[in-house]
Design a binder for these strands. Structure first.
Lengths: 100, 100
DNA sequence: TATGTATATCGGATTTTTCCGATTTAAAGA
DNA sequence: TCTTTAAATCGGAAAAATCCGATATACATA
């Protein structure tokens, strides 16, 4: 599946989801208290603590970002670790710059 | 009032509004049948014909783009002419590239 | 002044998005 | 196996977005 600009723009239409992406740019600044090494990605529960929304709501926001191709999920044991999909993000930004 | 990234991203969350902006990049290609000179901007009714939505809906979409600062309005007589606000669009794209 | 044209705004129906608590699923550890 | 923990999914309420037709406003012209 190729990247869908409309789906990405809809994913970026909620400020919390944009914050998630921005926080993941600098994990050591925003998730310095994570028990697991930041190289694994950011654990879902970290976002809950930081944004104050419920577990199910955060899970849905992360799923929206993943469906749009903006983040990738890495499941280890009972945890889910998230990281930015830099390739897709860069492709989207280039696409936007050249078409918008 | 400064540019509001969240408001802009919400404005871009509807594909019709993105199309409006893209069409305005190349007026001579997309609005070659406009009675008024394209240098005045694009007349509101041109968007209606091209997207098939009702007059009131198109007016609302244009208002959303203007509120976000993505387009500028030029009223002449009974007409409203729209053009892209290139400065704000460029600022937004730079902001997005450096923060997202 | 009366009529026609272009756009904005209003009122309301429909759809989509957002959010939460409860439940389910899956893995970890006692 | 039983319990705990983490995350996904379900069900439904509330809020926001979308869309249209009708009406209002503003300008042009007869």
């Amino acid at each position: 599946m190729t990247i869908d600009k409309t789906e990405i723009l809809k994913a970026l239409a909620h400020p919390v989801r944009v914050s998630f992406l921005e926080w993941m740019r600098e994990p050591e600044q925003h998730f310095c208290d994570q028990a697991h090494p930041l190289e694994m990605g950011i654990c879902a529960n970290q976002f809950e603590k930081k944004c104050g929304l419920s577990q199910s709501t955060v899970s849905a926001h992360l799923a929206t970002l993943e469906k749009a191709g903006l983040i990738k999920t890495n499941r280890v044991g009972q945890w889910a670790f998230y990281r930015r999909d830099e390739d897709n993000i860069a492709s989207f930004l280039n696409d936007l710059k050249s078409t918008l």
